[in-house]
Design a protein around this nucleic acid. Structure first.
Lengths: 149, 149
DNA sequence: TATTGTTATACTCTATAACTATA
DNA sequence: TATAGTTATAGAGTATAACAATA
């Protein structure tokens, strides 16, 4: 409605806004996670593996929305750093049960705390109420997605 | 604080939400733009080129936040489809002034309309007020970015 | 036959380096 | 020397195809 005489190069587009906000959050999170030796995706894997029942690689991949071949590489990295272990499932020997090592659990706690703090700092300029509205709005928009596909 | 016994796979993370919402909007926009022969990035280039003064490739790249080498390929594609033309700047013969053809202007109008309509449909489930809050919140978060860098 | 994990491969997107022509 | 445009190249990130082991 005020797009006519705007001196801005292009009126703000939702897509650009989302991409830029996401990129900035990613940078802030990366900075906060650096000293814990994991990146955001690896931390997400740890969190998924720690949430309740033991998961196979395919199950973990499904919960994160990545391909199983991507999960192989992720688990490789985490295992190399001693954060997780692969164990053959004795009931179904095709499956690897991937579990956190004690070190992995400790890393998850610390890194998740750092990530959460970074997210709170990131949202701080909005104020509590607006931040909550933002999160709810984003959840509505992803839920809407599920409804159609 | 509530991370111990949560039955959820992973509590919703802002990063995931942003990525998923962005991906969904990108799909919706791509669908809406398909019949106009441009994708979102190409449309953004057209919009930047149409906003006021004549721009060189580097200037257009700067406004979109992409590399000049990326802009070369983008302009190549747009020129191949007859949407823009490169003209040598006579004051500074290193620069290409990139302008829209009449067909490019028409394409911009139609495609931008389609994109805007898709964005409105996308935000519709939120209701007007919440959608406005979402947009303002995202703008605050990118502006915050500018303040620090 | 289908599924799991794995590897190799290809694809997309973007940036870096190096070249040219101009300034 | 520095900048604009271009090209070739490389890197990150991810998906697809094919294979062995297992169900």
């Amino acid at each position: 409605m005020t797009a006519d005489t705007s001196p801005l190069p292009v009126e703000p587009r939702l897509g650009h806004l989302l991409a830029r906000v996401h990129a900035r959050l990613a940078r802030a999170s990366a900075l906060a996670l650096a000293r814990h030796g994991v990146d955001g995706q690896e931390l997400a894997v740890l969190a998924v593996l720690a949430c309740g029942e033991p998961l196979s690689q395919v199950e973990a991949a499904g919960r994160l929305g990545v391909d199983r071949t991507t999960m192989v590489a992720l688990i490789d990295g985490l295992e190399d750093h001693g954060l997780v272990v692969r164990r053959r499932n004795v009931q179904d020997r095709r499956k690897n049960i991937v579990g956190l090592t004690p070190y992995g659990e400790e890393c998850l706690r610390h890194a998740e705390g750092a990530r959460l703090a970074a997210e709170r700092r990131f949202l701080a300029p909005l104020g509590e109420e607006t931040a909550a509205t933002l999160l709810r709005a984003l959840q509505v928009l992803v839920a809407e997605d599920r409804g159609r596909e």
